[in-house]
Amino acid sequence: MKCQFCEKPATFHITELTEPVGPQVMHLCEEHAKGFLNKEASPPMTAIASALAKQLGQSGDVLEELDQKECPVCGISFFEFRNSGRLGCPYDYTHFESDLRPLLVNVHDKTEHVGKKPTRSAGTADSLAKMIGLRREMEEAIEREDYERASEIRDEIKAMEDPIAPPSTPSDTQS
């Protein structure tokens, strides 16, 4: 594959997030990739890439250990996140908190949310994580064709689900 800007072979494949088009893969030669990554206006994705590159600079053992770290809820490994740039579930922000912090600083320069908050908070973080875990267990049960177990788990999830708010009295949902 050739570089998008010249005739040299493309050795760098950079995913750039563009709105509204969505992620676009750039195929670049080394020289153009350097120019692209060093642009001062690093788009968010390159900021992730460079924050992760810093982590890559850590000693091999530390990185290897980090890469193998897995979220107990959704099962994503840090390695998978590093490769895809996408997290697996809300609980990742808790489980990988210290690993994500440098990245958040690099991208946003801040680590604390300021602004709008949801007005209701039904369910604790634990019970929500449990539900995500159950969904995964259900999927695994289906995969090993244990449909009885899968249907038990489905019922368990149903019982935990946030009921549809009665439309006429939206204030009832503010529990």
């Binding site: 997030l17 602004g115 709008k116 908050k117």
Partner: peptide, 24 residues
Amino acid sequence: EEVILYAFHPRYGYLTACPTNVGT
């Protein structure tokens, strides 16, 4: 928000699949 429970973290705000969108 009245009918859907959003993923929200007291420190990181609205949680998103890509950390570049987290917060607001």
